[in-house]
Simulated scan of single mutants.
Amino acid sequence: MMNLFNDSPKRSGYAFPPEWAQHEATWLSWPHKEASWPGKLETIYTPYCQFIKAVAEGEKVRININNEETRAFAVSELEKVGADLSNIEFYFNATNDAWCRDHGPAFLLSADGKDKAVVDWGYNAWGGKYPPFDLDDVVPTKIASHFNLQLYTPDIVMEGGSVEFNGAGTILTTTACLLNENRNPHLSKSEIEQYLLEYYGAEQVLWLGDGIVGDDTDGHIDDITRFVNENTVLTVVESNPLDENYILLQENLNALKEMRLPNGEALNIIKLPMPSPVIHEDTRLPASYANFYIANKVVVVPTFRDVNDSIALEIIQQAFPDRAVIGIDSTDIIWGLGSFHCLSQQEPAIQ
């Protein structure tokens, strides 16, 4: 195992920056798969483009598209919401689906902030649930090649939504996802930790348990607990003891209270409410305010036409006093079983 990591990003001085670090761009993969939003694909483009518009006010937005026809459609949809097209770029990297957090590149920065690298993890559509995924799996390598960036290719499955970073050596994840036998059944927990530490340039991995009900990723961290600075997390809790999320979120809250950072410090924990259950066609959807995206100038939060929307927005605004917190209706987008964080991947700026 040691020889395997001799040339790892960590040993070459690279690390994965926190999401609130300065971005050069945000990467997206334009939604086109009807099966991800059955009967609703056409309804998601307005909120999706509102998201792009908000992010593009402070950084470039780089969008993977399949062909020229898709590009023309995307431009027309973006024009409808008044997005700044001068800050939006299109790349002909064909995709199977839209979830760029999971199939997009993991961008690393060197210790001096002057060099960038890409990790292309293996991608199998959350344990082989939604084939085909061959196009998505090679997107990071295509992007690294286009920009002539150092490329690392660990031969294991990993998704961006399954890991959360504080930018100071700590990774937060869940056992429900990373230890699921549909990902890397040949690896032990300690072996998976070693991959995370070496390829993300971190010092420790902290483990929570289950993700929320309705999450088809087997429990991604970005629906439950998010770092907002080096020692503070926002974590969702359910107020209704009869709700099926109540116990598992209490268990995660209790686990967070026991965790310690490398310096021995406890986490500063801020509770975030859950929206009322969002049901569509008798299916409970993984609606969560934790699936927000931190851009250079804004934090975009999914909202659900719920009484807790305004409460969640206020809590998140207090956590990000230097950014405008914007709620965008995600009621249709969540039918795809993810929201703004799942759809996006940040590219850090060179210092």
Rank of each mutant, 00 (worst) to 15 (best):
P241Q: 02
S162T: 08
E24Y: 13
N263L: 06
P262Y: 05
E34H: 13
E258D: 15
T235C: 05
A111E: 11
V61E: 06
I88Y: 09
P9K: 02
A144V: 07
A72G: 00
A319G: 05
L196S: 07
F73K: 15
I143T: 14
D115N: 15
T141D: 05
D306F: 06
F292K: 04
E238G: 06
A111Y: 10
P286M: 01
D137V: 05
A54E: 07
A266H: 14
P302S: 12
D243R: 03
M274F: 01
L179W: 02
G113L: 00
T46A: 15
S162K: 03
V138L: 05
I44F: 04
A312P: 08
F165H: 04
I269S: 06
R183C: 06
T170F: 01
Y45H: 07
T70S: 09
D215I: 03
L149P: 09
A324Y: 02
E164N: 01
L187R: 14
S276R: 02
A106C: 11
S276I: 02
A266K: 15
F340K: 12
L337Y: 15
Q346C: 14
A106D: 14
N252M: 09
I88M: 04
L109T: 11
G209W: 00
L4V: 05
S339C: 13
W37H: 10
T141C: 11
L256Y: 04
L78A: 13
R62A: 06
L234V: 07
N263F: 07
G327S: 08
P302D: 08
E57G: 10
T331N: 10
T173L: 03
D155Q: 15
E24M: 10
A83I: 12
L242M: 11
E198V: 04
I316Y: 04
F92A: 10
A176V: 02
E89K: 14
I212S: 01
L108C: 13
E68Y: 06
L234E: 07
T153L: 08
L337W: 15
V138Q: 04
Y289F: 08
R71T: 00
A324C: 03
G160P: 00
R101H: 06
S145D: 14
N6D: 15
G39L: 10
L208P: 01
P31L: 15
P321G: 00
P286T: 02
Q204K: 08
H103E: 01
E281N: 13
P9H: 03
D136C: 01
M274E: 03
P17G: 09
I63R: 03
G214S: 05
N64M: 15
A168R: 11
F92I: 12
L343E: 14
S330I: 04
N252P: 08
P132I: 14
K60Q: 05
T46Q: 14
N263Q: 09
C342H: 10
D216G: 13
G160S: 02
P275S: 00
M158L: 14
F165T: 02
T283E: 12
S276Y: 06
D282K: 03
E193M: 00
A117G: 07
L313N: 09
P105N: 09
K257N: 11
P17E: 06
L149A: 09
G327W: 10
I212P: 03
K40D: 11
C342K: 08
I88H: 03
L343D: 15
